[in-house]
Amino acid sequence: MIEVQGLSKTYRVADKQPGLGGTLQHFMRRRHRDVQAVSDVCFSIAAGEMVGFLGANGAGKTTTLKMLCGLIYPSAGQVVVAGHQPQKRHPDFLRRITLVMGQKQQLLWDLPPMDSLRVNAAVYGISDRDAKRRISDLSDLLELGEELTRPVRKLSLGQRMKAELLAALLHQPDVLFLDEPTLGLDVNAQSRVRQFLTDYNQRTGATVLLTSHYMADITALCPRVLLIHQGHLFHDGPLDRLANRLAPERHVRLELASPVGAEAFAGLGRLDRCCDCEVNLRVQPHELTAVVAQLLERFEVRDLEVNDPPIDQLIGDLFRQGSL
């Protein structure tokens, strides 16, 4: 459904020094420099896949999405989405995609969402009967009712974001480009949006490319992730395999009935902390069952927890390194 080969984008920007002197110098003799936003990105996404697109701020995620939608013309490379070259903006292509950006809106601020939905239906040539049916189905999935008849400015952020999703999906696109669709939403609203996207993908078989700074969005929706750093794609693969590669050990936390010396834990994984009655160990997954059994046999344990390292922390460390 999406095929990207050698995709690059370079911006030419003015190089101006601050202050009055810099302004005068820039007026008399302009200087420019090239900024490489995206460089030689290659990947492919099959129909029906839900793929997470991760990177720090300024890594090139939004620029890539805009090139995939045809909003920005690439400096180099080839892009094919749903059998079309996005930069040509063919009407058949535009009917098959949608772009949702959490920091931008398409609904008219002073009008109810229903009015904007009717305009969208007319733009895409959807009959009144089909438009009513689709609006009813999508509003049920998104738990939107009377909110569709209130002015957009009167809606909460979560209600507005769900209405934006409804407007973006009214024409039943085959490809969804979602740029931080849960930005600024509370925990409950984020959960409802994730569930809606899962249901929509299962019902329609739509292809989804999702960027988000909330790792809960990625872990809930995307089995596969693309990682980008300073415009370069440096990982493409399953999320669980990435997590196991970044943190191959499990964290075991113990609370003992009485203090025990650190030497008592020799051969039971890697000791991180041993302070009074609290003990933290790191254990290889294939040794976990045996180690936990020995801990329960040797010591009087009041509490025991086994956890994976937080995925947010792992991905954050990875972004700071910029490579695997």
Rank of each mutant, 00 (worst) to 15 (best):
T10H: 06
V13C: 04
K16H: 14
T23P: 01
H26K: 00
M28D: 09
H32S: 10
I45H: 05
V80P: 05
Q85D: 07
P86M: 06
K88Q: 14
K88G: 05
D92Y: 00
L94S: 06
L94K: 12
R96E: 14
V100W: 03
K104D: 10
Q106Y: 14
W109E: 03
S116A: 00
R118H: 14
A122R: 07
G125F: 06
I126R: 01
S127C: 05
S127F: 09
S127Q: 05
K132D: 15
I135D: 09
E143I: 03
G145C: 13
L148G: 05
S156N: 08
R160I: 03
M161L: 03
L165A: 11
L169R: 01
L178K: 00
Q190F: 10
R203H: 05
M215D: 00
M215A: 07
L221E: 06
L227G: 06
I228Y: 03
L233E: 07
P238D: 02
A247T: 07
R250F: 05
R250C: 10
L254F: 05
P259Y: 00
V260F: 08
E263L: 01
F265A: 03
G269K: 00
L271I: 11
T289I: 11
L295P: 01
L295M: 01
R298Y: 03
E300T: 15
R302L: 15
D312S: 10
